[in-house]
Structure formats: structure tokens, C-alpha cells
């Protein structure tokens, strides 16, 4: 029996679809069109085919930013996953007050990325930053101006990664914790009786069994890291000399500072295409839409 008539379903569906169509899908189509044009500041447009795309992939295009984005993703996500896993294993323990500690750990979860960026910019300042001061006191640095986190082309991207890691490791921890708590306790009991030690339990039982959760969390984080804008903008605005410029930043800059709508569109199209393909491939292996809908 068909419960709800097609008409009613359409009535439910249309308002949202029209809204999204007008303000999300339509702009994307416009962008796709614009990417084939050279658009001047006055709005005059000439069709130039794939020239914008060609420009993006040649030297002086966005290859450096692409590399920066990949480095950023790799560094941030790997550290977050490892740290999140370690945290989750600690926070899995139940004791009096464990819930409170867990809640406290979760409070930065929803802080604005911009605020995180600003906080770290303050802390990583070379003269009055607390990070270098602490590193000097511990003896890692000989003077607090040894590492110019935000002004040195070697460190600026890493500095942004550190802020990202601080902000999102609790998310990783939360996901892994949820996975760990969903594990069959009988399985762990059996392993313990068979004489598996703590490390064996973690490496051979816990980690393999939370693989689906781990992979989902990874894919979400990889995409989020690729999209990062606020943190980097707050800390360095992509500088110095575009050493911390990622794709998000360069697209925004090309639009607002250099006013090259066509070229910015072409880079954005490539960026979106890569992320969508990544999502589909990743989700395909984890998630079967047919199964989900039935």
C-alpha cells in the first residue's frame, strides 16, 4: 500500500528543494559557467574555454596551495587520530567523576574555529606568547625568539595545524569513544581470560573492531581539514609569502583581493570536484545507500 500520495510527498519536498536550489545549487551552476570566462573588474566577460583551469595547474597556479592543503590534512588528521585514540582509551575508564572529566574535555568542541585561531595566534606570538616562554623554560628553546611560529615560512603551516589539532582532537576522541563503548564486552572478557595483556587487547581487539567508526571519523575529518578557512585566516591569512595558503584561502583571496572571478571559480570547481569524488569513493566502501534506504 502506498501510504502517502506522491502529491503530498512533493509538497513536503518542494519548499526545501526550491530553497536549496535557489541559494545553493544555482550558485554552484553559475560558478561552473563562470569558470570558463575571463571576468574583468567591470563585469565584462570573454569566453576563454579551459584557460582558467590550465592556469590553475601550471607553475604560479594553485599547485603550491594544493600541496599545502595536503600537508595540512595529513599532519592534522594523523595527529588528531593518534591523540584521539589515546585519549579515548584513557577516558574509557569508568570511575567516580569520570563523566565530569569527560564533559570538561568536551567543552572546547563547539568553540568557533576563528576563536581557536585567535587564541593560538596570541599564544604563539614571538615576544609575548606563552608557548615560546614555556618552551624556553623547559629548555627546548634557548630563547623565546628561536621559533617565529607565524612569521617563519617553515613553521606557519605547522602552527595552523597545531590550532586545528587542539580544536578537533576532542571530536576524534568522542567518535572513537562511542565506538569503544559499543564493543561487545564479552569479546574483551574472552580475550582477557585467554591471557591477552592490555596492549594486545588494544591493538588486536579494540582497534580492529572500531574500524568502521574510525574510517567514518577519518573521512569527516579529512574533508573538514581540507575546508579549513577560519583558523588559517585568523592566524596568518595564508602568509608569510603564501607558505600557509591552502585552497580555501587562495580561492577567497583571488575573489576578494584580486577580483578574478573566473579564475577563482575554476579553482573552486576543481576543489569541489575532488572533495565530492573523495566522499563518494570513501562512502561507497563503508556505506551502501540501497541497504540504508530499504
Amino acid at each position: 500500500m502506498k501510504l502517502i500520495s506522491r502529491k503530498t510527498l512533493l509538497l513536503f519536498f518542494l519548499p526545501g528543494a526550491v530553497f536549496m536550489g535557489a541559494f545553493l545549487i544555482y550558485p554552484i551552476i553559475i560558478m561552473l559557467r563562470d569558470s570558463f570566462y575571463d571576468i574583468g573588474i567591470t563585469g565584462d566577460r570573454t569566453f576563454i574555454g579551459l584557460a582558467n583551469y590550465a592556469r590553475a595547474f601550471t607553475a604560479g597556479g594553485f599547485l603550491k596551495q594544493l600541496r599545502n592543503t595536503l600537508v595540512y590534512i595529513a599532519l592534522a588528521v594523523v595527529v588528531e587520530t593518534v591523540a584521539g585514540l589515546i585519549f579515548a582509551l584513557f577516558f574509557e575508564l569508568n570511575y567516580r567523576g569520570s563523566k565530569i572529566v569527560r564533559s570538561i574535555m568536551m567543552t572546547p568542541l563547539m568553540i568557533a574555529p576563528l576563536v581557536a585561531g585567535l587564541i593560538w595566534k596570541l599564544m604563539m606570538s614571538s615576544s609575548f606568547g606563552i608557548v615560546n616562554e614555556l618552551l624556553t623554560r623547559v629548555g627546548i628553546l634557548s630563547s623565546s625568539s628561536d621559533i617565529l611560529w607565524l612569521a617563519d615560512t617553515k613553521w606557519s603551516l605547522i602552527a595552523c595545524c597545531i590550532a586545528d589539532i587542539w580544536l578537533t582532537t576532542p571530536y576524534m576522541m568522542l567518535m572513537i569513544l562511542a565506538g569503544l563503548q559499543g564493543l561487545d564486552s564479552g569479546m574483551l572478557e574472552a580475550a582477557r581470560i585467554d591471557g591477552a595483556n592490555m596492549l594486545q587487547q588494544i591493538l588486536l581487539i579494540k582497534i580492529p573492531n572500531i574500524k568502521p567508526v574510525l574510517l567514518t571519523a577519518l573521512s569527516v575529518r579529512i574533508i573538514d581539514a581540507a575546508r579549513t578557512f577560519d583558523i588559517i585566516w585568523a592566524m596568518t591569512e595564508g602568509g608569510p609569502s603564501s607558505s600557509s595558503e591552502t585552497l580555501s584561502i587562495v580561492i577567497y583571496k583571488t575573489l576578494t583581493r584580486y577580483n578574478q572571478v573566473g579564475y577563482a571559480s575554476a579553482m573552486a570547481v576543481v576543489f569541489i570536484a575532488v572533495l565530492v569524488i573523495f566522499t563518494l569513493v570513501f562512502m561507497q566502501s563503508l556505506w551502501n545507500p540501497k541497504k540504508k534506504l530499504s
Binding site: 580555501s248 580561492i251 571559480s265 573552486a268 570547481v269 565530492v276
Partner: peptide, 15 residues
């Protein structure tokens, strides 16, 4: 799902 993944910075141009 795909729309959810789109980076805000990249659609900033047409928006």
C-alpha cells in the same frame, strides 16, 4: 551528502 561536503570558501564566489 555531496552538498554537505562542499567547502563554504569555494561557493563564496557565486554566493
Amino acid at each position: 551528502l555531496c552538498l554537505k561536503m562542499i567547502p563554504t570558501s569555494s561557493i563564496s564566489v557565486p554566493i
